[in-house]
């Protein structure tokens, strides 16, 4: 059976969906990702959907689920590269995916993950300088 590959990059997991999504494939991705986050104690997940032409209510829900599940496991999820036509269709469908963080491309998505990680860390010594 087909599988969507998940790449591990340091503290992050990287998924690039290159094929047409269908339900079983999306469900497989959901469970694989959750297991990978647990196994590697990942802090962030980046899902690139720039090659995906269709996201319907089911696949939109899977993306939302992944975001929620990874949140529980203390990892942030960013969905990047959504095509304009897909975004317009999701809105018309009634699925604004408010719980999911988004970014324009992989680069901006990585920046967002790093920022979110930094915001959680305690202040670094350099920043403490100001108070001395």
């Amino acid at each position: 059976m087909d599988k969507i590959p998940i790449l591990k990059m340091g503290q992050y997991l990287l998924v690039t969906v290159q094929v047409d999504l269908y339900d079983r494939l999306a469900l497989g991705l959901e469970s694989d990702l959750v297991n990978m986050i647990r196994k590697h104690s990942s802090r962030g997940v980046l899902i690139d959907i720039s090659a995906v032409n269709i996201v319907d209510s089911f696949m939109g829900r899977i993306l939302g689920n992944i975001a929620q599940m990874s949140k529980i496991l203390d990892a942030h999820t960013v969905v990047v590269g959504m095509q304009p036509a897909v975004a317009i269709t999701l809105i018309e469908l009634g699925l604004p995916m408010t719980g999911v963080h988004t970014a324009l491309n992989v680069e901006k998505g990585m920046d967002l993950l790093r920022e979110q990680l930094l915001a959680q860390e305690p202040l670094t010594p350099e920043e403490d300088d100001d108070y001395q």
Binding site: V80, A87, I91, E92, P96, T102, L104, N105, K108, G109
Partner: peptide, 12 residues
């Protein structure tokens, strides 16, 4: 509101 939501989905 739709336009704003669609823009957010794109990450802007």
């Amino acid at each position: 509101i739709k336009t704003v939501s669609a823009t957010r989905l794109m990450g802007a």
